[in-house]
Amino acid sequence: MLCDVVIEDDRWEAAGLEDLAERAARATLEHLALNPEDWEISLLGCDDARIAVLNEDFRDKPQPTNVLSWPSEERGAEMPGAAPEPPLPGPDPELGDIAIAWDTCAREALEGDKPLADHVTHLIVHAVLHLLGYDHVRDQDATLMETTEVEILGKLGVSDPY
C-alpha cells in the first residue's frame, strides 16, 4: 500500500479514510506519471485538538486546520508557476507525512454542501501535491496547483472544489 494510515479519531474509520487516502494518493501520483508502488506516504487521521498542536508546533499557528503536510525533502520549483521536478525512485521511498483533522473537514464539507468523501479526497490530493513540491504561496504556483488538483479530481469523479 502507498499510504500507511494511523487513525487516532475513530470517526475516520467510519468515513473510510484508508480507502479514500489510497485512492486519492494513487490518482495524484499516476497523474504525474509516478509509479505509486515506488513510494510511501504516512497519514494521520486525527481531530482538531491534535492538529492544532501540530499546527502550532510546526507553523506557529495555534489553531486547527484541515490538513497539514511535511515533505521528506524540499521539492519546490524555483520559477513561479513551474512544475516541481518529480522525485526519482531510490532506496528511500518516503514522500512525507500528512495529518488530517476530522472536525474541520466535516465542518467544511457541511458548510460547502459537499460530500465528506469528496472534500477529504480533495484535501488528500492537495496534501500529496505539497509532498511533491507544489505550493500556493505565489499566484502562479497556486494556479498550477489548483489546475492540477481539478484535473486529478475530475478523473476521480469529484467536482471542481474551486
Results as ranks from 00 to 15, higher is better:
62 P>N: 09
161 P>W: 14
47 D>Y: 10
60 D>M: 01
12 W>V: 03
91 P>I: 08
9 D>R: 09
143 T>R: 14
157 G>Q: 01
115 P>D: 11
62 P>A: 14
123 L>C: 05
47 D>G: 14
30 E>H: 12
107 R>P: 10
5 V>S: 04
147 T>A: 13
137 V>C: 10
131 L>E: 12
98 I>L: 00
18 E>D: 14
157 G>W: 01
139 D>Q: 06
28 T>Q: 02
41 I>C: 01
37 E>G: 12
54 L>R: 15
46 C>L: 15
56 E>P: 01
12 W>H: 06
39 W>H: 12
117 A>I: 03
87 P>D: 07
140 Q>N: 03
52 A>Q: 08
53 V>A: 15
96 G>H: 05
48 D>K: 02
80 P>T: 04
71 P>S: 03
138 R>E: 14
22 E>D: 15
157 G>R: 01
116 L>D: 10
48 D>W: 07
67 V>T: 03
111 E>H: 12
17 L>C: 06
146 E>T: 10
99 A>V: 04
122 H>Y: 11
77 A>L: 01
87 P>H: 12
107 R>C: 13
131 L>S: 10
125 V>H: 03
28 T>N: 02
150 V>S: 11
140 Q>P: 00
52 A>H: 08
65 T>Q: 00
16 G>Y: 09
79 M>D: 02
128 V>W: 05
43 L>K: 05
123 L>A: 04
50 R>Y: 13
23 R>K: 07
119 H>V: 03
62 P>R: 03
50 R>P: 09
43 L>D: 15
125 V>K: 00
84 P>A: 06
159 S>D: 10
96 G>N: 07
54 L>A: 13
36 P>G: 07
23 R>Y: 00
127 A>H: 08
142 A>W: 12
24 A>Q: 11
124 I>K: 07
27 A>F: 00
129 L>V: 00
20 L>G: 06
39 W>E: 15
125 V>L: 02
136 H>M: 01
4 D>V: 05
160 D>W: 06
28 T>G: 06
39 W>D: 15
104 T>N: 06
17 L>P: 04
115 P>Y: 10
84 P>Y: 02
127 A>M: 08
125 V>F: 03
68 L>D: 00
101 A>P: 06
104 T>M: 07
22 E>M: 01
133 G>Y: 12
96 G>C: 05
12 W>N: 05
9 D>V: 15
85 E>H: 04
115 P>I: 09
42 S>H: 14
137 V>I: 13
137 V>H: 13
4 D>A: 05
162 Y>C: 11
86 P>M: 03
117 A>W: 08
133 G>F: 11
162 Y>G: 11
94 E>D: 08
33 A>C: 08
41 I>N: 04
107 R>G: 06
146 E>I: 14
